[in-house]
Simulated assay, not measured.
Amino acid sequence: MSELRDVRSIGEQRWVPLRDLLLDPENPRLPADMQGEDQEDLAVHLELGFDALTVAESIASHGFFGSEPLIVIAENGSDRWVVVEGNRRLTALLGLVDPKIRTQFANPSPWEPLAAQANMSYEDQVPVVVLPDRAAATPIIGFRHISGILQWQPYAQARYIARLVDEDHMTFAEVAEMIGVDRTKVGNLYRDQAIATQAREMGIETGPMEEAFSLLTVAMSTPKLRDHIDAPLGSKAVPGEAPIPAERASELKELVTWLYGDADVEPVIGESRDISKLGNVVASKIGLHALRERVTLEAAVQKVKDADANPRQRLMLRLRTGKNSLSAALEDIDDFVGEAEVNDAVDEVRAAADALLAALSRD
């Protein structure tokens, strides 16, 4: 009979006082400009962006589930512990025990009755699993938040992958194997966060990009837009190097503006489905010139279509488009009869039609 052995496990289970636990200042969910902020600021951001209130409601009603311990590592130079997995739960605990923190939340009012119901203090013991370092936590964090059921937003995923590549010096293949995703996805996310970092270092406002990072990932899966800024395939991205050549800096800036807008202009796309249309426009000299003249995306698309048609085809296309638009307008007109703006628009349509009829009657 073979000898029975314990299942291999990682980490040491403990109970530690809440006061000895710290939010992770390197949490990939945090914006890049919040790295290293104090604990109160980190808690306020995590509560606002990641629905810590829902977790607090569960803790106040049912207690903290010991089956879901926080994962911690020792803080350098102290007896405290940095929570590398479970920062939303720790934010909920801090909100329940600390009036100073919860009064800074965007909406403190629901926290007060929950704090009274929970009746917790900083001396309460919290279940944790102690790991020797961040590297030991990589498999569980990466699997859970990139390929698992508790996936982070794309920007947080990309930043975590970048940390593994740039700081832990792992290859794309090693990261892919460790966290259970395709190597191509690892390379693409690494490249895309490197583009965001390069844009930020150029002085471009990247807050909207971080919030809607998937727009950039879709854009970089569009060859025509990738070619516009000379971005590499994700698999060809070189760790530690800026992915966009210096001579394409202006093209990178305008692509970011088309996708996200800036202080002066709105983005030219309305949703991610417009990105392939944007790629087709940018690949056309006429379309690119139109965008740089700050016309709408639809107007730029029309200019590209017009350029591809002979004069008669262009005329028929415009006439059919106008007829279809007017027919569609009939579906809505009854709800707005009598409005001055609507009447003015109809008058302009009539004037345009009269001009067309006059042109047809000329000898």
Score class of each variant (00 low, 15 high):
Trp15Glu: 15
Val16Asn: 07
Pro17Asn: 11
Leu18Asn: 08
Leu18Asp: 10
Leu18Ser: 10
Arg19Phe: 14
Arg19Trp: 14
Asp20Met: 13
Asp20Glu: 14
Leu21Gln: 08
Leu21Asp: 06
Leu22Glu: 13
Leu23Trp: 05
Asp24Gln: 03
Pro25Leu: 09
Pro25Glu: 11
Pro25Ala: 07
Glu26Trp: 02
Glu26Ile: 11
Arg29Cys: 04
Leu30Ile: 07
Leu30Glu: 06
Pro31Ile: 00
Ala32Met: 13
Gln35Phe: 13
Gln35Ser: 11
Gln35Glu: 13
Gln35Cys: 06
Gly36Asn: 03
Gly36Gln: 04
Gly36Val: 12
Glu37Trp: 08
Glu37Leu: 09
Asp38Glu: 11
Gln39Leu: 08
Gln39Val: 10
Glu40Asp: 15
Glu40Met: 09
Asp41Tyr: 01
Asp41Lys: 11
Leu42Val: 12
Leu42Arg: 00
Ala43Ile: 07
Ala43Tyr: 03
Val44Pro: 04
Val44Glu: 06
Val44Cys: 02
His45Ile: 10
His45Pro: 04
Leu46Asp: 05
Leu46Gly: 02
Leu46Gln: 06
Gly49Val: 05
Phe50Ile: 03
Phe50Asn: 04
Phe50Leu: 06
Asp51Lys: 09
Asp51Leu: 11
Asp51Pro: 00
Ala52Val: 02
Leu53Phe: 03
Thr54Gln: 13
Thr54His: 11
Val55Gln: 11
Val55Met: 14
Val55Tyr: 07
Ala56Phe: 01
Glu57Phe: 07
Ser58Cys: 06
Ile59Arg: 05
Ile59Ala: 07
Ala60Asp: 02
Ala60His: 06
Ser61Cys: 09
Ser61Tyr: 11
Ser61Thr: 12
Ser61Ala: 15
His62Gly: 00
His62Tyr: 14
Gly63Tyr: 06
Phe64Trp: 13
Phe64Gly: 04
Phe64Met: 13
Phe64Cys: 08
Phe65Pro: 10
Phe65Val: 13
Phe65Ile: 14
Gly66Asp: 14
Gly66Ala: 12
